[in-house]
Design a protein around this nucleic acid. Structure first.
Lengths: 257, 257
DNA sequence: CAGCGCCATTGACATGCATCAAGCCCCCAG
DNA sequence: CTGGGGGCTTGATGCATGTCAATGGCGCTG
């Protein structure tokens, strides 16, 4: 709700879907972050032609569900999406949060079926990029192919960072790292790096970071007491970016020899 | 640098190292698991032409190091490779183990520099696949492009499985899952699914699974006491595959209501 | 064959986080 | 304005796993 999809805000659902959800890539504010990066204008136009833009997702609505057949990847235009999978014993594991300009769904390529589910954390607009068309286009546009390889590779390295975080770091370090990640992703979009509203619940944060809600809450309280964060429900203000970095960096050099 | 081009295989080296490192993809025992899958024979030949095969890596030798510029991905032909990154505070995080038929190095694509290091856990043979050539070939061979997308996607979903494991599961469950993973990867290569030698140390296992050596050791002892595994140093025999599966599956349905 | 060093095992103890439980805050509906 | 419910916070307690320490086993080297 704090990031209304441009052109969508009024008279959303019901019959008259004549609204232009059809922001083109060429005019999209995010085209320097998203897929079109590294393409020239005629290429962007061709990419634009394969992309589908639908009505925005309401909070809680699914973009896709684990197991359903894979046909497209998605770019977030506004709002926020969480991806999660359900473990064998029925618990949920959040695997990622996706913000405007970011692309999700690539996990589905390998088995031709989505390996996670994705749902909107708040009202969100999303561009659907049919994968078969993207593949064909990639064959014709090597820059696009390369860029998409890079996007997938980035997803891999980010997952590996999370693995490291989960495997080695304390609750405090994990929360600090997440806050910094959100901060820098905001900065990328020219939003405030020090003040933002978390779109996800404490439960989701804990789930993502391998912690319980209670621990998440306690860590926020502690960081507030240390004057590193100011936390008011979902509203976060980073008061001491250096301090936060220090915590996330596992206090390099804290120990003797 | 540590993988001399294939033209170097015979002739150059002193003595009788006339081994042909020049196994071609067409004749490679692993070609149904590896990159060539889904390609017809003329395509395999073209792929084969870009692949470099060097002398084997000795135990402990690096295949590539974090930070060095990225130029190729690698397929394991024999032996075993571990991938790891070094955290900000200098500790190591193992991010994966790679066995014959598996491909590593895709993390380097996004930044054009390797995001992890890779070193041989035992004497290993590796095929080097120059990435720029692979990209060009992919443009000409859509099946190859698709397959490579799938490989990257598989890496993503596997990382996500590890994330879930680290975030939700107990030490016992993690070890059980790793043993099962190795078991099924052995089976894929037509080796025994129930008896094998671990190429990695307890330290590496613990590091990979977010546990200390001591915990790994204790879990092995416990599983042995339960007659689920027979452990003799690195030699593992799975005595009760179902039992192991049950442990890894987090005892579905163990709790009331 | 002896000695050294690394890896693995085992035990005793410490601790960070989970669990359980209670209460509070905020938002929304009526 | 008032009541209810979900999400968040805070406290008390327990447990799984980390930490520290000692010992054992195996392979390598001279």
């Amino acid at each position: 709700m704090n990031i209304p999809a441009k052109s969508v805000g009024d008279g959303d659902t019901s019959g008259k879907r004549t609204h232009d959800y059809r922001v083109s890539c060429g005019s999209c504010r995010l085209n320097t972050l998203c897929l079109p990066i590294a393409l020239d204008s005629t290429e962007v136009e061709r990419l634009d032609n394969i992309i589908q833009r639908g009505r925005p997702l309401q909070k809680g609505e699914h973009l896709y569900q684990e197991g359903v057949s894979f046909s497209a990847v998605y770019a977030v235009r506004s709002g926020a999406i969480k991806a999660y999978r359900v473990t064998d014993d029925g618990r949920e594991q959040v695997t990622g949060f996706y913000f405007p300009g970011e692309i999700l769904g690539m996990d589905g390529i390998s088995k031709n079926a989505h390996a996670c589910s994705a749902r909107a954390l708040e009202t969100s607009a999303v561009c659907e990029i049919p994968f078969s068309a993207l593949q064909e286009l990639s064959v014709q546009m090597p820059d696009l192919q390369r860029h998409f390889f890079q996007l997938m590779s980035r997803e891999i390295t980010e997952d590996q960072q999370l693995i490291t975080l989960l495997s080695k770091n304390t609750a405090e370090e994990r929360i600090a790292a997440l806050m910094l990640s959100i901060s820098s992703r905001n900065a990328r979009r020219k939003l405030s790096a020090t003040q933002f509203r978390l779109p996800m619940s404490r439960i989701d944060i804990g789930n993502y970071l391998g912690l319980t809600v209670e621990t998440v809450s306690r860590v926020f309280s502690r960081l507030q007491k240390l004057d590193i964060l100011e936390v008011s429900n979902k509203e976060i203000k980073i008061l001491d970016l250096d301090g936060l970095n220090e915590i996330a960096n596992v206090h390099v050099g804290d120990d003797e020899d």
